[in-house]
């Protein structure tokens, strides 16, 4: 089994990306926290399928986050409805629209089909190479590209109305 030192290093190196990924998949910080916890517990179990010779730890852990998020039987509408980003209070007028847009971005991303959402999050927010995304999601690089294009196309359509209203 992985030593405590390795386990601690793994947490310190990867928890932030895992938490962000889980948060953007579920839309809920509490769920993201539980998912990250469960993924690290999975690393300790005897039946853990991680093989350092075959898969980088980051790829394995982000794949585990994806699986855990999929298990959480959460209806997308509920998740989107619960996203509650605090408004930016630094300036009065356009900030309201910016806050609204931030909320709209969250809703739009959470509203994407699962297959497109996970690819978009890993590509845009985690800046992962397409090959690594393909390894996390378990599909071909070509499929990653097409999902990403579809996701960005859908988001462009939804978000363009807000963009036009911003100064």
């Amino acid at each position: 089994m992985i030593s405590l030192e390795e386990f601690t290093r793994a947490y310190d190196e990867h928890h932030a990306a895992m938490f962000r990924f889980a948060y953007r998949l579920t839309g809920l910080a509490a769920d993201a926290e539980d998912i990250v916890h469960e993924c690290f517990m999975g690393l300790l179990r005897p039946g853990c399928g991680f093989d350092a010779q075959r898969t980088p730890l980051r790829t394995y852990l982000l794949g585990a986050v994806r699986n855990q998020a999929a298990k959480r039987f959460r209806r997308r509408e509920d998740a989107a409805a619960e996203v509650n980003t605090p408004p930016d209070r630094r300036s009065p007028e356009t900030q309201a629209l910016r806050a609204e847009m931030e909320d709209s971005v969250a809703r739009a991303v959470l509203g994407l089909p699962d297959a497109q959402r996970e690819v978009l999050i890993l590509a845009h927010y985690e800046q992962m190479p397409l090959a690594e995304i393909a390894a996390v999601v378990g599909i071909e690089v070509g499929a990653v590209k097409s999902r990403l294009q579809r996701a960005r196309g859908a988001l462009r359509e939804v978000l363009s109305q807000y963009q036009e209203r911003l100064p």
């Binding site: 910080a29 926290e33 916890h37 690290f40 910016r98």
Partner: peptide, 19 residues
């Protein structure tokens, strides 16, 4: 536009909980 959606930081107690 996408960058406007910020993820919160990992809750500090999570590290202690996991370890």
């Amino acid at each position: 536009a996408l960058n406007r959606w910020k993820a919160p930081a990992t809750p500090t107690p999570l590290r202690a909980r996991v370890l």
